[in-house]
C-alpha cells in the first residue's frame, strides 16, 4: 500500500502494465502536439505577442506621447476634454498608462496596421482591450511596440486589469475604429 514501503524490495523491476504505458505515451505525445501548436502559431498564426521592447525613461515616453497627441489631435472625446488622436494609417501610435487613465483616445482605421507604443509612467497596469479581449501587461520604464490591425469598426474600451491602487477600477481608455477614409465626425485641426 502507498502508506507502507513497497512490498517487493526491488520494486523498480516490476513490469509496467501495457495500458499504463499506452496512457503515458498518449499523454507524452499530446504534450508534443501542444508544444508544436505554439511554434506553429509563431509561423502561421496572426496573433502573437510582439517581442519588440525598449528601456525608456518614463518622462521621455510622456514627452513623445504628448508630441504625438499634439500632432494628430482631431477633437476631444465628448465633454471629457481628453484628446482624440487620429494618426496616419500604418504609422506609429502612442498610448500611455498612468494613475488612473489611458491617454490619449485613439481613432484608427479598420484593416490598417499600426505600431502601438505602450508604457506606464508610474505603476504596472494591464492593457485590456474590450470587448476584443486582448490583454497585455504594461510596465513603467519599458516601451512595448506592438503591431496591431483592427478588423472591425466600433468603439472599444481599454480597461486596466492589473491592480494599480484605489482608483484602479476607474481607469478606462478608448479606441475608435472607423472605416478607412471616413471622417467619422472628426475634422483635422
Amino acid at each position: 500500500m502507498a502508506i507502507h514501503p513497497p512490498e517487493r524490495r526491488v520494486w523498480w523491476n516490476e513490469p509496467i502494465e501495457k495500458d499504463e504505458i499506452i496512457w503515458i505515451v498518449i499523454a507524452f505525445l499530446w504534450g508534443l502536439v501542444m508544444f508544436g501548436a505554439m511554434v506553429y502559431w509563431h509561423i502561421e498564426g496572426r496573433q502573437n505577442l510582439s517581442t519588440q521592447a525598449y528601456r525608456i525613461d518614463p518622462a521621455l515616453f510622456e514627452k513623445r506621447t504628448a508630441e504625438f497627441t499634439k500632432q494628430f489631435k482631431v477633437r476631444e472625446e465628448g465633454t471629457t476634454g481628453i484628446p482624440v488622436a487620429r494618426p496616419m494609417a500604418g504609422g506609429d501610435v502612442y498610448m500611455l498608462a498612468r494613475l488612473w487613465e489611458w491617454w490619449p483616445v485613439l481613432e484608427l482605421e479598420k484593416g490598417r496596421s499600426y505600431r502601438l507604443h505602450l508604457s506606464s509612467l508610474d505603476w504596472q497596469h494591464g492593457f485590456s482591450l474590450q470587448p476584443v479581449n486582448i490583454n497585455i501587461q504594461v510596465h513603467p520604464g519599458i516601451e512595448h511596440v506592438i503591431t496591431m490591425t483592427p478588423t472591425e469598426t466600433g468603439t472599444f474600451s481599454v480597461v486596466c486589469n492589473e491592480f494599480c491602487g484605489i482608483g484602479h477600477h476607474t481607469m478606462v481608455g478608448r479606441i475608435h475604429v472607423v472605416e478607412p477614409g471616413s471622417t467619422a465626425g472628426s475634422k483635422p485641426q
Binding site: M34, A37, M38, W41, G45, Q47, N48, L49, G126, S128, N133, I134, N135, I136, Q137, N161, E162
Partner: peptide
C-alpha cells in the same frame, strides 16, 4: 498557460 492563448485570458 499556452503562450498565445494567454493573450485572451491574462489577468481576467
Amino acid at each position: 498557460g499556452t503562450e498565445q492563448i494567454n493573450i485572451m485570458l491574462h489577468n481576467t
